[in-house]
Amino acid sequence: MSDWWGLWGWFVYSGGGSLFNADRTACGLTEPGSITGLQFMADLFLGPDRVAPPPGLEGGVGETEFHAGTVGMFPNGRWMTPSDRANDAFDWAVVEMPKGPGGNATWLFWGAYVINAQTEYPQQAWTVLKALTSPDVQAQIAALGTNIPSNKAQAAVDAFLNSKPPADNTPFINGAAYAQAEIPLFTGNWNDIVGGQYQPNIDKIFAGLATVQEAAQAACDGANPLFK
């Protein structure tokens, strides 16, 4: 919830950096691109112009303010659509995240359908899985607003594009081309590293208790021993 790396992680990637080194075996926050991205973020929140409200509860930034009509945009994911439809009495739309020095960046959040290898009912499970991923069901799921369909069949894509508001759903599909997949680490525990070490230090940037360099250094010092 409030420990949400999705927001600041986006700045890291659009700045040209990464949460990790290339083979995901060490912390990447101190790399120049990461610092550029984090600094850009810090300036938005804390700089003289202070264009962004401070991060709120639930890790969202500007979300409550958007509903209250006091900020113009906020970053979040497709899954917010149903809640936004319920919350907002005004018209709203979706765009891709702005380009940074590192090019376009966004997160690819995904949920996998899996069958347990030891299941007693492999045949039935396969039937369910086929049904779940059929264009028809994917279209129904897409129409609910939460998910982007996992089946490229025209029926599913159309249902997704027509699930309104927002009036235009293509930014979600465009983002898939350059998205960073949220994937487990090869050599460490995501929760221990990102939740346990990165997040508390990034919090200090927002609170004005540490500079970007200090926070990134502290995060990497704490995290690097946790990559096995």
Partner: peptide
């Protein structure tokens, strides 16, 4: 309210125990 944050400022021992035992 805070999931122990921001910056671990509301992380209590029992919450830390829960994180270690049941989340990790």
């Amino acid at each position: 309210m805070t999931q122990g944050g921001p910056a671990n400022s509301t992380l209590t021992i029992v919450y830390y125990l829960y994180q270690k035992g049941f989340q990790r």
